[in-house]
Nucleic acid binder design. Sequence first.
DNA 1: CTTGAAATAATGAATGA
DNA 2: TCATTCATTATTTCAAG
Lengths: 181, 181
Amino acid sequence: MNWVKPLGGIGEHAATPVDPAQLDATDLQLLLLLSRDARISQRSLARELGMSAPAVADRIARLHRQGVIEGYGVRLNWSALGYPTIAYLTVTAGQGFEQGLIMTRLAELPEVEEVMIVTGGVDMLVRVRVRDHTHLRELLIDKVWQIEGIQRTETSLSVAEMKPKNTTSELLADMIRRVEP
Amino acid sequence: MNWVKPLGGIGEHAATPVDPAQLDATDLQLLLLLSRDARISQRSLARELGMSAPAVADRIARLHRQGVIEGYGVRLNWSALGYPTIAYLTVTAGQGFEQGLIMTRLAELPEVEEVMIVTGGVDMLVRVRVRDHTHLRELLIDKVWQIEGIQRTETSLSVAEMKPKNTTSELLADMIRRVEP
DNA sequence: CTTGAAATAATGAATGA
DNA sequence: TCATTCATTATTTCAAG
């Protein structure tokens, strides 16, 4: 058969869900401290948490094994790096095309920070980071619109963004509040 | 006077633009290595870059001073933490309301990861991370819709996301390719 | 989880290209 | 200015309890 599969073949392309890990308050505090400064020493972490450095190392290793910690990154000022512009593209896929495949093609572009299949009027939301309008235009013409199955895109350009905030820290702080009020 | 200011009062609430820093290929390589694993030792960085550890420390300090490096963070698996759901809200502001103020109110919510004022049919795009549909409903009713000046919101729920990728690394690798092909 | 010793890493001074 | 080496201080890691 050859019917339309709205989410057909997504499985291989999308992130796979994970069962929530059971973490105690110390784990969350540890993650909070790391989210504020991931280069903090285990010794400093140990001091803040009131435990020994090896105990901290053990917990970090366990959080890695559990898949809670995926890695450590650097927060960069993209304006200072010459990539000040964010745009969102809404993508509508042609009937009968695998959205998962389109998602993968989009995700391969270095400028693409996120691809999500969403409910509502359009099929996908794509977040891209570019140097300027010329870069955005070239990205659309040379890369995005070349992807088979993309029927239509609309571009929303960012005119102003909020001051950068550390969402990870805020969400973790919120989780800690719910655990021990 | 009391005319409508479409972007009125944004200045105090939005991120301020920064002049691009002039970075050499070594700086970009350094940032690339940090973006892959921000907890790598300066010694390892020095080995990879073919220089001494103090030289690496100097460069990192300078990149901090230049505002290129804003900090270091931990990449978490939010599904494993019990926050698997992302939604995008489009927000339309009432006439005469300061969008900058609405942006600040939204950014104060821990669930809000990003607020952008965009071109196109709506005024703002808001990215939120929640535990489940109940959490999203409560966030909308108790928090978002209580913000003065918000006239209308529409919610796009994420049905599938791409596999997590390190955009920072990819963009930096792309920048390095342009500097030294 | 702890302590304490051994291995590794970061930092600062002095200095050279 | 930018990097180096070396000495000192700090941190991580490992073994044992």
